[in-house]
């Protein structure tokens, strides 16, 4: 059977917290080094995997004082968090199904396991991930339409598409917690012996709450660390904490005994607690919060944005939009 158990999602894209931390650090270091060497972090990647940097003005490269300051790992994280929220925003605005939102988010997260935001601007990657998710989930929207909808040049999307697909290793099937949630809810109908409409309504209510919890989980590192079923259970747990309509632990035991009798419940609750604490730490930065980081990022990507060269001018024009976009 082709399902999560045999998927690339499970075999290639579930990490430990240490893995992730290391990857973020490596990408950040690489961008920092590039900034020192070339005076810019803007990276051009060729289809064959080779990459190059747009060389900056010599003075910027030579004098340490003039050199733009690189982003710290935490700043990168904040910026990613901002754009992840933005992905949900944009997808809501387009009324895309949650599945697309989740796929775009997972693509975005996987992308930045390999690259620093200093190398590829997250706004571009955000758009490209949404576009790619639409394609992969059979909800095709033209690049132009997507670009128009949010006032962005759609060429950015097409130019980054292959970079994104390659960075994903063409592993395009991803699993989100939403479908698992629905499964748990219909399972719960039986478990609770829900007969009357009130009970069914109550369960439906907790499904809605759980979906909102899952939306939050999707913005944490959770999807890179845990399988979708565990993300869904955590969302359900949090929803039930609000609605309190069934004995969660008893349900958990019944799920385990039916599906994975060998597993200890402590293992599962351990994961759920970890996901819970990720939600606790979830950042939802506003555009104000990231404004200074975005400015820093701009100078890393385009150090010469004030100079008169045609190329730079073009780019600075691009990036002047960014601040307004964010707000």
């Amino acid at each position: 059977m082709a399902d999560f158990m045999t998927s690339t999602h499970r075999t290639k894209w579930i990490f430990t917290p240490q893995d992730i931390k290391h990857k973020y650090k490596v990408a950040n270091q690489r961008a920092k080094q590039a900034l020192e060497k070339y005076g810019t972090t803007r990276m051009e990647v060729d289809i064959d995997g080779s990459f190059s940097y747009a060389e900056s003005q010599n003075d910027a490269k030579d004098s340490a004082e003039k050199r733009p300051k690189p982003l710290k790992v935490e700043e990168e994280q904040l910026l990613r968090a901002f754009y992840e929220f933005k992905i949900q925003d944009v997808c809501d605005a387009f009324k895309f199904p949650r599945k697309i939102q989740a796929t775009a988010l997972i693509y975005f997260k996987r992308f930045y396991l390999q690259w620093s935001v200093m190398e590829h601007h997250p706004k571009d990657i955000m758009l490209t991930c949404i576009y790619a998710a639409c394609k992969a989930e059979e909800n095709h929207v033209s690049a132009e339409e997507l670009g128009k909808g949010i006032g962005q040049d759609h060429h950015v999307i097409l130019n980054n598409e292959m970079l994104v697909f390659q960075s994903l290793g063409f592993d395009l099937i991803v699993y989100a917690p939403y479908r698992a949630l629905e499964g748990f809810i219909s399972d719960l109908e039986e478990f609770c012996g829900a007969k009357d409409d009130d009970q069914l309504m109550a369960l439906k209510g907790s499904l809605d709450t759980a979906r909102i919890e899952a939306d939050k989980i999707m913005r944490t590192d959770g999807p890179l660390l845990f399988p979708p079923g565990q993300l869904a259970l955590t969302a359900l747990h949090r929803a039930n904490a609000v609605h309190g309509i069934f004995d969660f632990e008893r349900y958990l035991r019944s799920v385990l005994s039916r599906h994975q009798p060998a597993h200890a419940i402590s293992e599962l609750t351990g994961s759920m607690n970890a996901i819970d604490s990720l939600i606790g730490k979830l950042l939802t930065p506003t555009s104000k919060d990231v404004k200074h980081i975005d400015r820093k990022l701009k100078s890393c990507l385009d150090p010469g944005s004030h100079d008169k060269s045609k190329k730079r001018k073009h780019r600075s024009k691009d990036s002047s939009n960014e601040v307004t976009d964010i707000s």
């Binding site: 490596v26 990408a27 270091q29 690489r30 080094q33 590039a34 060497k37 070339y38 995997g49 080779s50 990459f51 190059s52 940097y53 747009a54 060389e55 390999q114 690259w115 390659q166 960075s167 290793g169």
Partner: peptide, 16 residues
């Protein structure tokens, strides 16, 4: 500027 392998620490080149 082309980033040749020796210029960039290869182990830190993106494994992508």
């Amino acid at each position: 500027a082309i980033a040749a392998p020796e210029q960039l620490n290869l182990t830190e080149a993106p494994t992508w």
